[in-house]
Simulated scan of single mutants.
Amino acid sequence: MPLTRVTLERFTAFTHLSLDVSPGINILIGANGTGKTHLMKVCYAACDVSRSGIPFSEKLVRVMLPSGGSPGRLVQRSVGNRSGTATVHRGDMKLDVTFSRDRKLPPGDKDSAWVAQPVQSVYIPVKEMLANAPGFRSLYAAREIHFEEVYKDILDRAYLPKLRGPIDQSRKRLLQSLQDIIGGQITVSNEEFFLRNRNGNLEFTLLAEGIRKLGLLWLLIQNGTLAASSTLFWDEPEANMNPGLIGTLMNFLLELQRGAVQVFIATHSYVVAKELDLRTKDGDDLMFHSFHREENSGEIVSSTASTFHDIDPDPISDTFTDLYDRQVSRSLGGLE
């Protein structure tokens, strides 16, 4: 069952947020510092613990990485706030945790119903990790290095071997479309990733970062991580991506959604949002969630629309409109 709602009370940047989410694609937009990544990490942690069985509170600390591993630092920094709560819903099921500034991690908060229906999930961070993968997981396990656990997790998913059994037509089509773009298949040798094509194996350190990201998607499809009933979280998919490829990438995400994969992306890109909007077909389920700070209170609030055109406020389009107006003004010699 996909995620259906997330509620945050006095948690990191949020005073209060209750957000219903789509079982299809959720596009999070907003200025820097409006909590988009925090929201996705809360949802990802909830999905991940459904399979790992570790306490929700512990996973949140690992993926958010507050200073000193102190869970109390996840409580919103405001006078009088002593505790904060994060709650994630899947239909009638919910997983919640309350952090306090006055104590360490709360007691174990496993939920038997939540764990009884595990969700396969993957979080793709902004920084691409496959080029730097060799030795990272063993270093992470042995040493206290300052990396959010999402970086170790994405490598765990990428290193999974090929899924056993025949490849269904949907997966085969997605894999082939990615192979056509990147020009080959991805292989692994001694923890090092390579793009294999007719000329041999090309190491990931010599590939453009955009190609590496597409190669990661190829791996996640091949090994079954991204399959029906799974959930994908992707922070700024446009980063280091050729704008000419973004339309193809968004079509790929739409195909995943049509295959019952729930998707969350956080973006600052007009091209990402508009390509999704234009490529949507009947039956697709998209929600655009806009986050902004109230002028008077400074609180982060959200609004939701089913189309990019209906988002209000829309900082992405506002910026492009301003650029267009300035270009027109310049072309007219500065006339109003």
Score class of each variant (00 low, 15 high):
Gln176Val: 09
Glu238Cys: 10
Ser269His: 12
Ala208Trp: 06
Leu286Arg: 08
Val126Phe: 01
Asn199Ile: 07
Gly259Ser: 14
Gly80Tyr: 01
Glu149Gln: 11
Arg279Lys: 10
Ser170Lys: 15
Pro315His: 02
Tyr270Asn: 13
Gln179Ser: 15
Arg171Ile: 13
Phe288Pro: 04
Lys274Val: 06
Met64Ser: 00
Leu207Glu: 03
Trp114Ser: 02
Tyr140His: 07
Gly24Lys: 03
Ile186Met: 11
Leu254Ile: 13
Asp180Arg: 12
Asn190Pro: 03
Phe193Gln: 02
Ala46Asp: 05
Ala31Glu: 14
Glu58Pro: 04
Arg258Ile: 07
Asn81His: 02
Pro23Trp: 03
Gly33Arg: 02
Thr205Tyr: 13
Asn199Cys: 09
Leu232Phe: 10
Glu144Cys: 05
Val21Trp: 00
Ser229Ala: 09
Leu323Asp: 10
Arg330Leu: 13
Gly80Met: 01
Leu217Ser: 05
Ser78Asp: 04
Lys59Gly: 07
Met40Ser: 03
Lys127Gln: 10
Asp48Pro: 05
Pro55Asn: 10
Leu202Phe: 07
Leu8His: 00
Asp277Val: 09
Val301Tyr: 03
Leu245Lys: 06
Val49Thr: 09
Tyr270Gly: 10
Val126Cys: 08
Pro243Leu: 09
Arg330His: 12
Val328Met: 07
Asp180Gly: 07
Gln262Ser: 10
Gln179Asn: 10
Arg10Cys: 02
Asp325Gln: 15
Gly334Thr: 04
Ile124Pro: 00
Phe14Lys: 00
Lys127Met: 08
Ala133Phe: 01
Asn26Cys: 11
Gly333His: 10
Gln262Asn: 09
Thr205Asp: 13
Ala227Thr: 15
Arg212Pro: 05
Leu232Trp: 03
Phe14Leu: 00
Val97Gln: 00
Ala131Lys: 06
Glu203Val: 15
Asn201Trp: 10
Arg279Gly: 14
Leu60Cys: 04
Pro23Asn: 14
Pro243Ile: 14
Ala133Met: 05
Leu207Val: 03
Ala305Glu: 10
Asn251Gly: 14
Thr225Pro: 07
Phe204Gly: 01
Ser230His: 07
Phe204Met: 05
Arg51Ser: 14
Leu226Asp: 04
Leu217Pro: 02
Trp114Ile: 03
His289Glu: 12
Ala131His: 05
